[in-house]
Amino acid sequence: MSSKNVLFSKKLLIPWLEKYSQKNTGWKLPDHFSHVSCYISPLSLEGSRKWHGTTMMSDKEGSSAASCYLDEKSFHLSCQLFLQYSSVLKDGWSWTEFKGVKEGYMKKTILIPGRLCSLLNQFWKHKTEDVDALVEDQVDDDTENQAVCENQAVMCYEYHVLYSCSYQVPVLYFRASTLDGRLLSLEEVWNNIRPNYRKHLLQGPWDTLTQQEHPLLGQPFFVLHPCRTEEFMRPVLQMAHVEKRKVNYIVTWLSVMGPMVRLEVPLSYCTAVAAPD
């Protein structure tokens, strides 16, 4: 390894490591750094992303270490296996193929009885001004005779799992709406998270939350940005690699990301869904 390469790598690595070591005070910068620097291959900038991947296999294990990334083919295979088991569980996941392009995404919709107060204010705020004037008396109403009343605030959470070519990881898109299709704002989504959970979330992947257009639908969605996915996945994959276990990337990833946004992944997925060969 030439000294030039080490220098180049330091320049790129140090800010990232500093940031990381600040967050996890247990990780000391010098150790980590020396660890990394001896494994840096003379890669171009193109490789700088892979390069985080190579940092991961810096254990003395050897060269056949698992990658922290997921190529597109493995993404589709992992999704297929995931969906197969989901249909057994009737867990609600389905694959939506997008017309024209051969891309698609895994989708699930769940409904959550809302906290009425948190949504009702919103309802009055967002209603259009003249709808009350449209009430009609002539239209028959048989509440008294044969209909029973159900009045309920419900939130609909829609989750889409897509593949990000640029980050080579799956990406979780989601949006939440009321039953009339109005999207909840980030504040409303946040307010619907249990307070004792919030603190934890702020440290986790929640801080990568952002709003983007759905790449296939072109509609605004919230996204847990893939920029740190690899960081969350590394310890898990590393452990699995050490233990010579094969894991389904989608299952592992979704069980890390999902709970942050009210998406539960039943434990049985972990044992029942295999990794693609």
Partner: peptide
């Protein structure tokens, strides 16, 4: 007995 409305300008 009346219609509903929704304001989706935000999204």
């Amino acid at each position: 007995m009346g219609p509903r409305s929704v304001n989706l300008s935000e999204c």
